[in-house]
């Protein structure tokens, strides 16, 4: 399992995302564990905050650009220390924001603030340069040589986040990764449908957002009948939405971030109890 590319340890700069940092730090801790077990040197640029997608999607582009410039500055500095290092994003959606939206956001915002075209282009190039080195966690993991783990028989159903699927084009990779770590995938009906989260949409338009979440939970119900014992995703935003809805409906069905499942499998045979315990979100001091 301890694979080393070209004889040297790769350096990974962790982009933990604000949601995981604040609401599910265990997910990032698990990701660190997974990366280190595979021989990587993990660094965490501690000045990072949030990618600004909430503001961007709501139309507040000036505000989003403030956060985006900070993000680019933080990770650009971190990457400059090592020309081989990559940024590992613990969210397909936040990765898509950085890779797909930053260059034009920063270009236009620079012009809007009265900067010269040259200055605007510099921001665009800087965003593109950093964006090229961002990789979503499961996509990175899929490229790592991992010994196939024996099947644990735990049925997992996977929610494919919209931005990861449609803006990054990552579709089956996370399920393949789960399978190679011993989990059996239980399909989800209408898997390409949104969970209804949509950032602040879930707050401002909660009736529609909830109706869409309930539709997803209905599909989840069918996966459960087919043997799914837990729900996972590579996007914590979607999971927070669905687990928040399950919790309000007093449904204890386990929901865990994908890196947590991988870390669990790395440590030995996985049991349903271990997954349930992990989902219950027990905090340590």
């Amino acid at each position: 399992m301890m694979s080393e590319e070209e004889g040297r340890s790769q350096t990974l700069q962790l982009f933990a995302t604000c949601l995981i940092d604040l609401f599910r730090p265990q997910a990032a801790m698990a990701a660190v564990d997974v990366m280190e077990r595979r021989g990587a040197t993990v660094e965490f640029p501690t000045a990072q905050t949030c990618c600004g997608q909430f503001s961007y999607n709501a139309g507040y582009h000036r505000e989003a650009a403030d956060l985006a410039r900070h993000w680019v500055a933080v990770f650009d500095a971190a990457l400059r220390r090592d020309s081989q290092a990559r940024v590992i994003a613990l969210s397909g959606s936040c990765a898509a924001m950085v890779i797909r939206e930053y260059p034009s956001l920063l270009y236009h915002d620079a012009l809007d603030r009265g900067d010269s075209v040259d200055e605007a282009e510099r921001w665009q190039e800087r965003a593109e340069r950093v964006g090229k080195r961002v990789i979503e966690f499961t996509e990175w993991l899929a490229h790592e040589a991992t010994a196939e783990l024996p099947t644990s028989g735990i049925g997992v159903t996977y929610h494919n986040g919209c931005h990861m699927r449609r803006m990054l084009g990552i579709t089956s990779v996370p399920e393949t990764v789960l399978q190679s770590h011993g989990f059996s995938i239980v399909p989800m009906e209408e898997a390409d449908q949104c969970c209804g989260f949509g950032g602040t949409y879930s707050m401002t338009e909660w009736p529609v957002s909830t109706a869409i979440a309930d539709q997803k939970l209905q599909a989840l119900g069918k996966s459960r009948e087919m043997g799914a014992q837990c729900l996972t995703s590579a996007d914590f935003g979607c999971l927070a939405h669905l687990s928040g809805r399950l919790s309000r409906r007093r449904d204890p069905f386990p929901v865990v971030y994908i890196a947590e499942l991988i870390a669990l499998a790395d440590r030995g045979p996985v049991t349903v109890e271990a997954v349930q315990q992990m989902a219950q979100h027990k905090e340590e001091g």
């Binding site: 999607n57 139309g59 919209c162 449609r166 390409d192 449908q193 338009e205």
Partner: peptide, 10 residues
Amino acid sequence: PSALCTLCHA
């Protein structure tokens, strides 16, 4: 534009 879209890109 604000009330009827989750920006799922479908």
